[in-house]
Design a protein around this nucleic acid. Structure first.
Lengths: 326, 326
DNA sequence: TTTTATTGCTAATAATAATTAGCAAACTTT
DNA sequence: AAAGTTTGCTAATTATTATTAGCAATAAAA
């Protein structure tokens, strides 16, 4: 900053006043422009040092996420966290780490030096994580993940209860031969949705017919081929519960190729309420994942500065009844 | 930090050494734990002031975006920018602003104080923007937007050339009665894709048949109803060019409902290569939007510290030929 | 003309945290 | 036992930037 001052022919104090637009400090427009020109010409960048401002700076929450582009839900979580941050006049700074521990540590170090108010540590897939050591330097919340300790607060969707509710909605329509197309079995979400399906069927006193259970891949192709397989098996289902909406897209395709009318000749239930669900024909009945609400929750926990013990939360996944489950 | 020192019974110097893990400074494990406990108990947060470290800190790029959850492309841009940042050992910090000028200004102020190396100012829709005044404090790049000046470098997709290439691919298959389902006409992307379609048709010496042009809404429902309308009109198309992939999903639905076989009895071309495109049946031929490459480009411009005049770039949108355009 | 108010800056000081220079105690080697 | 080395800290100083206290020049009012 001293070099900027020399270059502009003013004092270091004046440079500081220009750059920070301090209330009550009058600076001539010409002087101001001279300083800004010098800043640009010299490529001045603050070292983030010096005397801290008197004014309380805006609160800042760091949000660390492993991935963002492979599913729409991370973006929705970000929206939720951002909404609450904005309501509380806080900044949300997001870093995508790709799960790289060195990158995570670097970001956490920067945030410690910046004095952020807390960190949301998020995962795109619902899973158990091993949080980085540096996270202990921050108040932190685990979002869509958990570490199996009570060290940090955490929030995940209540997938079993979601699967149960979706199956109940089909049962309530009188369906009894309900087929289930699962996702990949190594994923928390896939396993738990299936467990919810089973629980609802058992509570209704119905046996699970293994001929009506298929393993899919969470993609339209998996839903389509599983549906084609189901429809040519010996037992015709009266409803198909797909463990995610993308597979329901493929299920719709297969049914239409076979001359069926989803929602009329056979019911379809999806899961995760992707944007496309409401735009399918007929509009898909599904289960809403609470990613927005979980993001909001995470922000609120960090913005609430009273001292509370960490909570491990499971958030409800409400059923969204449209036109395909009848 | 003085309070932490007092609480832990050590000097301020020791607290600094503990928190920064300085190379060559030996601290006993017990002392270290006492300091970390005091930090946690007192909720110490750095004011971001004091003496700047000798070591050059990691470079940091700020990435400011208006929205993220309403389309998958922003996330892909982030991935691109992130990849290049990581390759160059830089941190990428992302802030979602919702287009709020005050929020933008607050983030830019924080970044000026942090001394970030540059700012990517991005927009989820391709459009003309009015960058915030505070952006002049930073080296900056406009991503998927432009401001009509040469003040900042900018990059947008070459939508016209993309629309042209897609139409050419259909023409190359012998299609001559090509229908076009546009998006909403106020959007840059929608207008330019249609202009590319027209240009290719004119270059091929073909008249545009207005009976084969429909306005859609960029959603599956728009594609479905436009397709049903087209198929019952007097002129049967041999190909349908949908101005985005979501409308192509709806187009497929309508065609299958009518007993058609996309890619066999009638060709379909999408645009924007959403993830779902490759998983449809048949796999959708489409045009790839260069969001990842644009993100990479933006990062590279900021990480390149040689002085160059700002460039206004238009990035190619390559055709992705799968199974639906034949 | 004299007095008062306004404008626009600077020198000096202040606020944090990083680093240097040094020291005392404990341990190891001769 | 004496000399040399290692360990683990502290006091003092340093590096950057923000703010206070004050002043000189100019403009406006009496």
């Amino acid at each position: 900053m001293k070099d900027v001052a020399a270059h502009a022919g003013v004092s270091q104090s004046t440079v500081s006043f220009v750059l920070n637009g301090m209330v009550g400090m009058r600076i001539a427009a010409e002087t101001r422009q001279k300083v800004l020109n010098a800043v640009a010409e010299l490529g001045y960048r603050s070292r983030g040092a010096g005397r801290p401002p008197n004014a309380l700076s805006k609160r800042v929450i760091g949000f660390m996420l492993d991935e963002i582009s492979t599913s729409p839900f991370a973006a929705i979580s970000i929206d939720g966290a951002q909404e609450e941050a904005r309501k509380h006049d806080a900044l949300l700074e997001i870093v995508m780490t790709g799960g790289d521990p060195d990158y995570e540590a670097a970001a956490l170090r920067k945030w410690a030096a910046d004095g952020v108010n807390g960190v949301i540590y998020g995962s795109i897939l619902t899973r158990k994580v091993a949080p980085p050591d540096m996270l202990t330097r921050h108040r932190a919340v685990l979002l869509n993940c958990y570490d199996g300790t009570d060290r940090y607060a955490s929030v995940v969707p209540a997938e079993r209860r979601g699967g149960e509710a979706a199956t109940k909605a089909l049962l309530a329509q009188g369906h009894r031969k309900i087929a289930f197309i699962s996702g990949e079995p190594w994923m928390d979400a896939s396993r738990q949705r299936k467990e919810g399906f089973k629980r609802a069927m058992q509570k209704a006193g119905l046996e699970i017919d293994l001929a009506l259970v298929r393993e899919g891949n969470f993609l339209p192709s998996g839903g389509r081929s599983a549906t084609l397989d189901l429809m040519k098996s010996g037992t015709r289902p009266d409803a198909i519960f797909c463990a995610n909406d993308l597979m329901a897209v493929g299920c719709y395709e297969a049914l239409k190729e076979l001359g069926e009318r989803p929602g009329e000749t056979i019911a379809v239930m999806g899961y995760d309420d992707q944007e496309i669900a409401q735009h399918l024909s007929p509009a898909l009945s599904t289960v809403l994942l609470p990613h927005r609400e979980m993001g909001q929750w995470a922000s609120l926990v960090l913005l609430d500065e009273t001292s509370r013990p960490p909570v491990q939360a499971r958030m409800e996944c409400p059923v969204v009844l449209r036109a395909s489950h009848g």
